[in-house]
Structures are given as C-alpha cells and as structure tokens.
C-alpha cells in the first residue's frame, strides 16, 4: 500500500475465467472447472485449502457475489463443487463450457495444514465432510499429502490436472504415484450425504481410508458422518478438519471437545461483499475481546471448532 496517488497498484482484482466444464455429478450437485484468463499478464494466486472465491454474476437477482470454497486447483485452473439450490447457483449451473464468468482472488483464511502436522504427530487426520462441504476438504487432502509426505501426492489417472500447485504457488509438473496407505499420519475421510455420494473416488486417491455415510442409508453407513465417526475407534493423536452444515459442525465440535481432539471447521454464512468491508457475515466466537464477532469472509471461513459459539 503506497501513500497518495502515485505508484499505487491493485493487490486484488476481479478477473474473467473461462468455463472448461460444468456438469451435474450427483442430483443438483455440479462440478465446474474453469481457467483463469490472464489478459493483463497478472498471475492468479494459488488458493490455499479452505479459501473461497467470490463469483460475480450479473442481473437483478444476483447483485452480490457468490462465495464458493475451492475444491481443487492447479496451474491457473480451479474446480468448484456446488449445489444448485438458489437463484445464483441455479444460474451458475446453466453456464456452458466456453462461457466466461468473473471471479475474485482466493479469499479468507483456510485450513492450517501445518498445525495438523504438528499436532497429529503419528496419529490420524480425519476430514469430515457434509454434502457439498466435502468440496474444500478435497483440496485439503491433496495439500496434506504434499506437505506431510513431501513432494507431489497426485496419482496418475483420473484427475484432470497436469500439475499440482503447491501452497506457495509454485507449480510442479511432477506426477509421482501415490501408494496408500504406508504413510504417517494416516489420512481418513468421513463423508456424509443425504442420499447420493459424490467426490468419493477423488478422496480415495489421497486418503488411506474413505468412509461414506448417508442419511437414508442408500449408500454406506446409515446415519450422519458424525454418527459414523463416533462408531469408529479413536487411535489417539487425531486431528479433525470439517466442512458441512452447521448442525453437523456443531455435533462434531461437541464430540471433538469431549475427546480433546483439535478441530478446524470451515463455516458458511450469508455474505455481503465477501472481502471484509461490510461486516455482513458475522461468526460469534468465545473471546475476551470487546467484539465477539469475527468476519467469516476475512477472519474465516476456517475457525477453531472450540472458539465458535454454536448456539446462536
């Protein structure tokens, strides 16, 4: 930030992205991949796991940007997985490959992968996803493999990316084959869905174990992801990362709190600006400070499960 009018350059800008694919992968759940258009020669920052991007749609019903967590990213390409539930997401589902959308830079504070590495020691990292909340956990799974295992965790086949962008934004072209499970800590995904699972095979590429739960029992465990997690034996040294409906996160926070397991949650909230200016997306936290509200868009969306005041 420079003083005055001279020499000022924008740190952040909206850019256009070209849609490469946009397809329904489960009922009302879409997977969109797009490529950042590099018209001005500016590089687009590599999103950290848990960060989100604002998608700017136009029209009378879509004045405000839509925040989406990043599901995967590599070399200027981003993947979002979203539910077509409202006017904005239904409009987004209607975009065809080749069309352009405007997006903002990666925003917010993501998951703290380093904390998991330290805290988990030789234990187990558990990713707990509910519905589309699984989306940011996939990028997290990939980064955890890269960070904790050292080197590129991507396995050949299946994934559409040519190279993996590391957390520092350096693009690696090496596609080392990942052979689970002989790694430490173990990476375990517990994914809950209403009825129809999605992204499961993508998680299986990075995780030593991937378990599925469905509310109606149509697939995997009959119950919620948290119910399933509670049935499993704790090995000690667990670290939980989670994203999903608030009721799921609250149940998980209670369970993790009772067991003394560290938990990071990615929260969803209705946002105004999505970049920290309007204070629209408040999260209440337990804090001795005078203001107990934090901005989900800027301070979050990832918070420690123990600091969130769940019953508001």
């Amino acid at each position: 930030m420079s003083a005055g009018t001279r020499g000022w350059t924008a740190e952040k800008r909206l850019v256009f992205a070209k849609i490469l694919s946009n397809a329904e992968i489960a009922r009302t759940i879409y997977r969109m991949e797009f490529e950042i258009m590099d018209e001005d020669g500016n590089s687009y920052p590599a999103p950290a796991p848990g960060q989100f991007i604002n998608v700017y749609l136009t029209g009378g019903r879509m004045l405000l940007p839509r925040p989406f967590s990043v599901c995967d990213s590599a070399a200027g390409r981003l993947t979002l997985v979203y539910g077509a539930v409202g006017a904005g997401t239904r409009a987004l589902a209607g975009f065809a490959p080749g069309e352009r959308i405007r997006v903002g830079p990666p925003a917010g504070n993501g998951f703290d992968v380093a904390a998991a590495g330290t805290a988990a020691g030789r234990g187990r990292i558990v990713l707990v996803g509910g519905g589309v909340g699984a989306a940011p956990l996939l990028l997290l799974a990939r980064r955890i493999r890269e960070t904790l295992d050292g080197g590129d965790a991507e396995i050949s086949g299946g994934m559409t990316f040519g190279g993996a962008a590391s957390a520092t934004g350096v693009v690696s072209g090496v596609n080392a084959t990942y052979a689970p499970p002989a790694r430490s800590p173990a990476l375990h995904a517990v994914l809950g869905y209403r009825s129809e699972p999605f992204l499961v095979s993508a998680f299986e590429k990075y995780c030593d174990q991937t378990d599925v739960a469905t509310d109606d029992g149509a697939s995997g465990f009959h119950g919620t992801a948290v119910d399933l997690l509670k049935e499993q034996t704790l090995t000690g040294g667990e670290f939980f990362f989670a994203c999903g409906p608030r009721v799921m996160l609250r149940a998980l926070a209670r369970f993790a709190g009772g067991q003394g397991i560290p938990l990071q949650v990615s929260l969803e909230e209705r946002m105004g600006c999505g970049y920290g200016a309007c204070l629209g997306c408040a999260c209440k936290v337990a804090s001795p400070a005078e203001i107990q509200h934090r901005k989900v868009c800027k301070d979050g969306p990832v918070f420690n499960g123990s600091e969130v005041v769940w019953d508001v």
């Binding site: 009378g60 004045l63 405000l64 946002m271 105004g272 309007c278 204070l279």
Partner: peptide, 22 residues
C-alpha cells in the same frame, strides 16, 4: 457488537442488511 447472523439478504435489485452498527 452488532446483530447476530444472518445480517444480509439479497433482494431483487438490492439487498437488506441488519448489521446493527458493529
């Protein structure tokens, strides 16, 4: 402190806010 969330809601051609002057 301001108001609890949700504090914003989109409307046709606009938005409602109830930040509460946090």
């Amino acid at each position: 402190q301001g108001n609890p969330a949700p504090r914003v809601a989109e409307t046709w051609g606009g938005m409602l806010n109830a930040i509460g002057l946090e």
